[in-house]
Amino acid sequence: MGKSLLVLENLSPGRNLDAYMQSVSAIPVLSVEEERELTERLHYQEDLDAARRLVMSHLRFVVHVAKSYSGYGLPLGDLIQEGNVGLMKAVKRFDPTVGVRLVSFAVHWIKAEMHEFILRNWRIVKVATTKAQRKMFFNLRSMKKGLGWMNNDEVEAIAADLGVDAKVVRQMEGRMAASDTAFDAPVSDDDDSAYQAPANYLEDHSADPAHQVEHQNWEEDSQRRLMQAMGELDERSQDILAQRWLSEDKATLHELAAKYQVSAERIRQLEKNAMKKIRVTMEA
Rank of each mutant, 00 (worst) to 15 (best):
E9I: 09
E248Q: 14
Q228F: 12
K167S: 10
R15S: 15
S179G: 13
S104G: 06
L42S: 00
V103E: 01
D239I: 00
V103A: 07
S31C: 00
M88Y: 06
H58I: 07
E33P: 05
A210I: 09
E255Q: 06
V55M: 11
A26S: 09
K131S: 15
V168W: 04
K3P: 09
Q216R: 14
R141F: 14
N217W: 13
D239P: 06
A264H: 03
M282I: 15
L241R: 01
Q22I: 08
A128S: 07
Y69E: 00
L233N: 06
K135F: 10
E82S: 07
S31P: 06
A112N: 13
V280T: 12
Q171K: 15
T252I: 02
V127L: 12
Y260M: 02
D95E: 09
F61N: 07
L233T: 01
K3S: 15
D184I: 05
R175A: 08
S31M: 06
Q269C: 11
L233C: 04
P209S: 12
S237H: 08
N16F: 00
S247T: 03
E9V: 06
G148Q: 13
A194R: 02
D191T: 09
L162C: 07
L140Q: 04
K277N: 09
K67N: 11
G174M: 15
N16I: 00
Y20S: 01
K259V: 02
K144S: 05
D184F: 12
G2S: 08
D49P: 03
I158W: 04
Q212G: 09
G146P: 06
G73I: 01
L79M: 10
M88N: 00
L87H: 03
K135R: 15
R60C: 11
E248C: 11
K259A: 04
G77W: 00
E9R: 11
Y44E: 07
G71Y: 12
G83W: 01
N151M: 12
A210R: 10
E40L: 13
T252C: 05
N200H: 09
H205D: 13
A207N: 11
L140T: 01
L253E: 00
L226T: 01
V32E: 15
F137S: 05
D234C: 10
H64F: 15
L162N: 05
V100S: 06
N217V: 09
E116T: 08
D161P: 04
L147Q: 14
V55N: 08
H115C: 06
D184Y: 13
F105P: 02
A132N: 15
R279E: 13
L253V: 03
L202K: 11
A166D: 12
L102V: 03
E203D: 13
H58K: 03
R224Q: 14
F183S: 02
D189P: 01
E35V: 05
M114R: 04
D191M: 12
N10F: 11
S4Q: 10
D184S: 10
E248R: 14
R60S: 13
V125A: 09
R141K: 15
S68V: 03
E219F: 10
V85H: 02
A66Y: 04
D153V: 09
F61M: 05
K259I: 02
R224W: 12
G148P: 08
I110H: 00
H115K: 08
